[in-house]
Simulated scan of single mutants.
Amino acid sequence: MALEAELKDENSVDAPPAGTLTLARGLDILRAVGRGATNLNEVSAEANIGKSAAQRMVKLLVQRGFLRSTHGTDFSLGPALIELGFHALYQSPVPVIAKPILEELARKYQDTVHLAVEDEAQVLYVDKVPGTRGAQMRSRVGQRMPLSRTGIGKALLLDTPDRWESTFDSESPIEQAPHQTKAAFLKRMKSYAKEGIALDLEDNEPGIRCVAAPIRDGSGKIIAAISMSATNPYMPDERMKALKTVMGTTAAQISRKLGYSGKTF
């Protein structure tokens, strides 16, 4: 029975491959610090690692620049991760191709523009070009958000109606806007899928609205999305309606540069 349990554990989706447990624990420590753990007790608990093992790994990660530490505590992500993050970002063709287009879009319309991908069933922001109206938004590059709450997340889900209900259910109620019931969300997604554009009607942040559109690769698969966001006074219904064409056309422009030749907005 013990051998059977061990084999089952090794073959599970979450179990690290044989011989990589130490590496897996080091990565878990990095994720723990990334989620806000700042001392050894918090890292040990968050990463589910004993304190002595965590202390040794943290020391090595600090030496290699993957973590920062002040007086053996106050852990934060280190400069080596920043460097690798930029390399990862620009090794993907999407941010490189989209960057000048997004900058022009933000300049012309004066509002904040985002680029995001889906990662681990969440929105992951990979670029942000702030607008010039002075509105502050909590979004930032590298931040994750629930798919069902953001306009850009809804755009990433447009082609997968089989996931809509389960995605909504998997996100805790505290993450949902009070007005966004499951029935309302599913009704909106059907409409957005038909139109090819998704909206954020203060679902994610009070007073902020956005219009989002999907980006497709050469196979036609949605691989990213863009959005334009602004405060309520700058995003009345009439302007949001007009921006649907703007965002759809812009997303299609990026998609064509990625090899997509199918139907565009």
Rank of each mutant, 00 (worst) to 15 (best):
D119G: 12
A135Y: 12
K190V: 11
R138E: 13
T160M: 09
E103Q: 01
A183P: 03
V123A: 04
K99Q: 15
M189S: 01
E202C: 10
S166V: 12
F168S: 00
A198I: 04
A116I: 04
Q110G: 10
L158W: 05
K182W: 06
P161R: 05
P161G: 05
K154Y: 00
K187T: 15
Q110I: 08
M137R: 07
S139Y: 02
I152W: 04
D169V: 09
V129S: 04
P173K: 02
H114I: 09
P146F: 05
E175P: 10
A184F: 12
K194N: 13
D169R: 03
V129M: 01
T160N: 10
H179K: 08
K194M: 13
D162F: 06
N204K: 08
R144I: 12
M145Q: 13
G142E: 08
A198T: 02
A183L: 09
G151L: 00
D159N: 06
I197S: 03
G134N: 00
H114A: 10
I97W: 08
S170A: 15
R149F: 12
A116S: 03
R107Q: 15
A116F: 00
L158N: 02
K190A: 15
A135T: 12
D203Y: 00
Q143Y: 14
A106Y: 06
L102R: 03
P146K: 04
A98D: 00
A116V: 03
Q143R: 15
R140G: 13
G153M: 04
K108L: 13
E175F: 14
R138G: 14
L158E: 02
Q122N: 11
D200T: 01
K182S: 08
G131M: 01
G196D: 06
L124K: 05
T160Y: 07
S166E: 13
K154A: 05
E120Y: 13
P178N: 02
D162H: 01
T132M: 07
H114K: 07
V117Y: 01
A184R: 07
D200N: 07
A135P: 08
F185H: 00
T112I: 03
D162N: 03
P161L: 02
A193C: 02
A177Q: 04
P95W: 02
A198Y: 02
H179W: 10
A183E: 10
K154C: 06
A193Q: 00
R138A: 15
A116N: 00
L102V: 09
E118H: 07
A155R: 00
K190C: 12
Q180E: 11
L186V: 10
P95K: 04
L199R: 01
Q110A: 11
I152P: 00
I197E: 03
E104P: 05
D111F: 08
S148I: 14
D127K: 07
I97H: 08
Y192N: 13
L186I: 10
W164I: 05
R140N: 14
I174M: 14
A121C: 13
F168A: 01
K182Q: 03
A177R: 05
K190T: 13
E103N: 01
E171M: 09
Y192R: 10
A183S: 11
P100A: 02
K128Q: 12
K108G: 12
Q122W: 08
S170D: 14
R163Q: 03
R138K: 10
